[in-house]
């Protein structure tokens, strides 16, 4: 097998202007192909953003939160400190707990702020004390811990998050899958559209192809004129679509942390480079689709 030769790629893009002239220009199919490629690439950007964002969410919920749980201590105001100390002692002795820490008043206020506003007098309210529990690699035995706590710290409720987290992680994973399926469908549709357009062009130029064939043109020469056109057209259209898609995502209103999933739709850091894969991929799809269409048509000719 030969190594990929980049001068060949360059040649393909710059093109054999002669070979290109052999096939008369086609106005409407050209524009429609460009438009379809742009639309498909635009959609692909969103499907990709969806996949990436839900993937990120699933990972975060599944991984980071899995390592932490919360202990809530509700008790009369005068007992709360004592019970907190007792709970921390129990946690220290529990195998599988890496660390445990009572949240400060400021932290609790920050947690409640979105619901009750910044002026909440936390100190004077009988709100429960929260203890953040971080597990080590193996995790702890939640059932055993609950039993011990019920004996020693009657006001403690252990919330290990799994109950509500698991369905969310599942949903996020399913959403991510749907995103990828959409991307697959988008590229499949793009291949179908380009095949139809190329077939139309090949049929419209049957006479040209026959003449070229009769004067000794090889199939590859004839195919190249079509393949090159559709590949470049798709590349241009897809690039346009990706740019528009990225702009649309950039223009999504951002709502800080509270928005969660909805505003998470987008890319982070190097992730912004991911959509740049779409135009070359689309061009490759166009290349293969046109190539197959041309090969099919040419095979029928003497």
């Amino acid at each position: 097998m030969r190594r990929p030769d980049f001068t060949q790629v360059a040649e393909f893009i710059v093109g054999d202007t002669q070979a290109d002239r052999m096939v008369p220009p086609t106005g409407i199919t050209a524009r429609l192909t460009l438009l379809s490629a742009a639309a498909m690439a635009f959609l692909a950007v969103f499907a990709l953003a969806l996949s990436v964002a839900t993937g990120r969410m699933a990972d975060r919920w599944g991984d980071e939160l899995a390592r932490s749980s919360t202990l809530r201590i509700s008790a009369p105001t005068d007992q709360i400190d004592a019970q907190t100390q007792a709970a921390l002692r129990v946690l220290e002795q529990t195998p599988g707990v890496a660390s445990a820490r009572a949240l400060t008043d400021e932290e609790q206020r920050a947690l409640l702020e979105p619901w009750f506003g910044p002026d909440l007098p936390v100190e004077t309210l009988p709100i429960p004390q929260l203890i953040e529990v971080i597990e080590d690699g193996d995790g702890y035995d939640a059932q055993g811990l609950r039993l011990r706590l019920s004996a020693e710290v009657p006001g403690a409720v252990l919330d290990d998050h799994t109950r509500w987290r698991q369905p969310l992680v599942n949903a996020a994973n399913r959403l991510r899958l749907l995103g990828w399926v959409s991307i697959g469908l988008i590229f499949g549709t793009m291949a179908a559209i380009i095949t139809l357009a190329a077939n139309a062009a090949l049929a419209a130029n049957a006479q040209v192809i026959a003449v070229l064939r009769l004067v000794g043109a090889r199939d590859s020469y004839i195919a190249k004129a079509f393949v090159r056109r559709y590949t470049l057209r798709t590349l241009t259209g897809a690039a346009l679509g990706v740019v528009l898609g990225l702009v649309a995502i950039l223009l999504l209103p951002s709502a800080q942390t509270a928005g969660g999933f909805l505003t998470g739709l987008g890319f982070r850091g190097a992730g912004w480079l991911l959509p740049l894969v779409i135009p070359p991929l689309a061009a490759m799809v166009a290349f293969i689709a046109t190539h197959l269409a041309a090969a099919r048509t040419l095979k029928e000719l003497p």
Partner: peptide, 25 residues
Amino acid sequence: ARDDIALARRRIGVVHQDVRFLDHL
């Protein structure tokens, strides 16, 4: 193969009865 036929046609000049050209050139 089809390419062999194409190459052979470069060595055979043909004047067709129904002369056909590329009408846009």
